[in-house]
Amino acid sequence: MNTHQPVNIIMIEDDDGHARLIERNIRRAGISNTIHHFTDGTSALEFIFNGSEGPILNGPAMVLLDLNLPDMSGTDILTRIKSVDKLKRTPVVVLTTTDDKVEIQRCYDLGCNVYITKPVNYESFADAIRQLGLFLAVIQVPEVTE
């Protein structure tokens, strides 16, 4: 029944500037999916688990997650998402300024699908985001066949 439902993008990012940059690049990559932006973990989790348009109640989604949030750590959100059956296949893209190997490994261990560091070199960052668009196109396939 979800076959034709578009993937919702849930962006959890406390820095408005970053959020805007990410959104612009996503749009520039030709992706027009709905983007739900949250600046803190609590409201993001509320949307994911209880929101009427959230992934549990309403179709597939992709999560763009910043690790440094004011109210909780991004890894907490990651753990919560990956521990629920209905959500554990939801792709999570971690976007953060950290390039600490230990933290990256921890994210992958927790089930993160892609890890992108926010580099100051904007071009590579924009590239990564555009790659994300391709990724988005790919992940729709299993969702469709399911």
Binding site: D15, G17, H18, L21, N68, T97, K118, P119, V120, N121, Y122, E123, F125, A126
Partner: peptide, 12 residues
């Protein structure tokens, strides 16, 4: 680094 990402991004 966070604000720097903004400066750089919006410069671009």
């Amino acid at each position: 680094r966070s604000p720097l990402v903004n400066v750089m991004g919006f410069t671009s």
